[in-house]
């Protein structure tokens, strides 16, 4: 049996007909064509499939699409704003926090939520925050650096400089 569902993805209401068993990850990728969300294990360990559900990061491979009918989802495609890359995305670029890029969408979603809840995380809070995301390429060092850098960029954005630099 198929179910008619509506997901508000990156601000746009999208409809799909899916069987009950369709994973949110597959729904986003294959029913809605948003292939930025990646799938690396389908058992919840790698974090590649992490998306924001009503702002909270969740595993889309461990969520049925029907369960989240009517809810808001943000994927990597929705992170950049009209002015371009988000501070988190910029920090990842600046710090060389990605190589093959397969884990990256999951990290970006996780870190976006992390910094919203904790704008200036300490080192161990960063590690804890990204501890559910695997990366096989970078050895994480530059990802950790990028999270701190993103926190700086976000702080700058919140506090537009009051004047020119001295």
């Amino acid at each position: 049996m198929e179910h008619e569902i509506t997901l508000v993805v990156n601000g746009t209401a999208r409809r799909a007909r899916v069987p009950g068993r369709r994973l949110l990850s597959d729904c986003l990728r294959h029913d809605l064509g948003l292939t930025g969300t990646h799938v690396g294990c389908e058992h919840g360990v790698c974090g590649c499939c992490t998306v924001l559900l009503d702002g909270e990061p969740v595993r889309s491979c461990l969520t049925l699409a029907v369960t989240v009918d009517g809810r808001e989802i943000t994927t990597v495609e929705g992170l950049a704003g009209p002015e371009g890359l988000s501070p988190v995305q910029r920090a990842f670029e600046e710090c060389h926090a990605l190589q093959c890029g397969f884990c990256t969408p999951g990290f970006l979603c996780t870190v976006t939520a992390l910094l919203r809840d904790n704008p200036a995380p300490a080192e161990d809070e960063v590690l804890e925050g990204i501890s559910g995301n695997l990366c096989r390429c970078t050895g994480y060092q530059n990802i950790v650096k990028a999270v701190h850098r993103a926190a700086e960029l976000l702080a700058e954005e919140r506090q537009p400089s009051t004047g020119e630099a001295p």
Partner: peptide, 22 residues
């Protein structure tokens, strides 16, 4: 679903019905 769905994905569980209580 953080325990049940991995089991479903690996086809280690195959219930005829799933009752989503969410």
């Amino acid at each position: 679903g953080q325990s049940l769905i991995p089991l479903l994905n690996m086809r280690l569980a195959a219930p005829a019905h799933v009752v989503d209580v969410n």
